[in-house]
Nucleic acid binder design. Sequence first.
DNA 1: AATGAATGAGTTTTCATTCAT
DNA 2: AATGAATGAAAACTCATTCAT
Lengths: 204, 204, 204, 204
Amino acid sequence: MSFTEKKHPDQERASSRRKQVLDAAEICFGSSGFHGASMAEISKAAGMSAGHIYNYFDSKDAIIAAFVQHNMERVTNLMGNLEQCEDPLQAILDDIEKSVHADLHPGIWKLPLEISAEASRNPKIAALVRDADCYSRSQLRSIVAKGRAARGLETDMATLDGRVEAIICMFQGLPTRALYNPALNEAALVAAFRLALAPLLFGE
Amino acid sequence: MSFTEKKHPDQERASSRRKQVLDAAEICFGSSGFHGASMAEISKAAGMSAGHIYNYFDSKDAIIAAFVQHNMERVTNLMGNLEQCEDPLQAILDDIEKSVHADLHPGIWKLPLEISAEASRNPKIAALVRDADCYSRSQLRSIVAKGRAARGLETDMATLDGRVEAIICMFQGLPTRALYNPALNEAALVAAFRLALAPLLFGE
Amino acid sequence: MSFTEKKHPDQERASSRRKQVLDAAEICFGSSGFHGASMAEISKAAGMSAGHIYNYFDSKDAIIAAFVQHNMERVTNLMGNLEQCEDPLQAILDDIEKSVHADLHPGIWKLPLEISAEASRNPKIAALVRDADCYSRSQLRSIVAKGRAARGLETDMATLDGRVEAIICMFQGLPTRALYNPALNEAALVAAFRLALAPLLFGE
Amino acid sequence: MSFTEKKHPDQERASSRRKQVLDAAEICFGSSGFHGASMAEISKAAGMSAGHIYNYFDSKDAIIAAFVQHNMERVTNLMGNLEQCEDPLQAILDDIEKSVHADLHPGIWKLPLEISAEASRNPKIAALVRDADCYSRSQLRSIVAKGRAARGLETDMATLDGRVEAIICMFQGLPTRALYNPALNEAALVAAFRLALAPLLFGE
DNA sequence: AATGAATGAGTTTTCATTCAT
DNA sequence: AATGAATGAAAACTCATTCAT
């Protein structure tokens, strides 16, 4: 999946420069959106000339792609951590408070919205997010499958898929909720999530 | 709510032209996004010169605003229809199949994503969607409250709010699911939705 | 000098319409300048559709030309009035207070500036103002010549021309003074004008 | 006085580019006026892409402002030179021929007209010219005051102000004269100026 | 490696003018 | 006579990208 990166003699420095740019992009994309952020803005935030950025990225689109890629990996990692838990299923329920809280934090929910909108138009980005989604979906599927098996609950594949989809769907709806209802009652939402997730995780 | 529109002697024609523009915008915004779509593109789709569009809309932003407004009203109307049902709560469950199917239809889920992304940057659009969301939220809250009362279920306000939020959240997550997982198993998702919505609607 | 005007069956009405437009133009040109004023603005002020104006004027430039023409005639008329006086030379001196005051009135001095700027670029307008200037210059020359003769003062043509030029020059500098020094001491300026004009009118 | 300019590492080159633009502007503004001259025209005359100009000026208005500023400084400098003279008052009289000749030179008188017209509509430009005018007025006032004192002539402030105004007024009327009367007899005008200026400078 | 000067295509918007009604 | 809907050719300005240094 990784795009062919330009060859640089000093790979260390190159990757450090790339990170510099992506960090700058995070800030700029967060406040101005992918298209609102100009290369000039990014280059200033990165402490590097605009021209030089092109030594590390083919185009602005390539920066967006790398940025999105990076963001998707964060989700994958989260899922990986979950997998390590003693009882991941219970952990999901237990973590709801934290996860919901995080997603409602202003500055967190902006980027998913930006990414989704971009993916809906840009096929390259779409491919990226689909790939990542596919991977984390399968991670979650496996987590749920094992958790249910440990509890002696039978589940056929389709049912499992549906539930995993629904679980992800709930969490992916959060950014929109945060945006549309700034006065949202977080505690009450957490309680409702618990109520809805329980049958998805443990239901027959 | 509606902004003072330019006065046109022939109101009929004027509103027809506005519709023409908004219809063209729907197509262009859908395929290119709010900012990817140029006025030239829209004007071509509307079969009208770009300059002429400015006789009906103050700016491109005004077109976006009117377009978003229109879209939010569709949601409000849907909720209104629900309210008319004999047993709206049951209707929600019964309609899941249809609602989910609609939201997963390519061409339907693009615009919500675009709107949310825009709202996250454009305060005017944010105000618009928040206003509309507040309204339809209160509609749904009242539906759920009545439905539960009819079933002899007590619910305090906060709990009600949380559940309503969760319900909306699930549906607002759908466009992202459709985008991220094109191979999504719709039937299985519907079943999972039913499972998760039941306690939100009827749970203690 | 009058441009070929479009033929209208009802000449009365036509000329009334032309006046309507020119009156509107006076207002609009005064507040927005020749190029800042749009045809839409003028047509609204004239209480007439923009399209209809083109039945009476070939173009916006034609309106400007007619407007300028009309304004130059005002100066010519002023000069004509002066010619009627018992002792025009003395009248010039006596009227200084009034003339200066008028020229310093905000709303009066804008148009000469606008006209001059336009004339400096637009040959058609240049021809217009030159023509009018030539005429009123000769009027003033004749006034001064007669006045001096009546006082037994000999003057050769060139000297006369120079003095007339200088007199006009002083008055044509007034709009700029009004604009550049809003705190201008009018009474003191009038006194100075009197001082400077005296030798131009009566000097050897 | 000078606006904060964009930071350019190579200040030398930056200021040379700014000059390039202002020189081009001089040509274009002279032939087409501030608003008749397009950025495309200016950029071509400057030998530089239109976009690039925006690296040195915030907007076309900023170019106009800088241009006007520059022009006002020329006047101030002239006045400064005058101040250095042995007997500035006499110098004014002696220089009339030269000053009038300069002001009547085609290509010189266009810009003052343009500037005044612009200042009459654009408050920013108005502030600029008023500021400059105030300064050179006070220079001239001090010159005249000293000159008269050296000749043992008493003058109260108001009278002085009025005469200074009148002197400036005469010179500021020149561009209009040049424009309105291309056949103007320069020598005769100079003589008349001398006649009128004498009492303003040396009169009781 | 690094800069930032320079480009040029593309954007929204305005407006004089035309023309069907 | 009169309207105003409609056009299209401009205008100012932005920005990703290139390239000489």
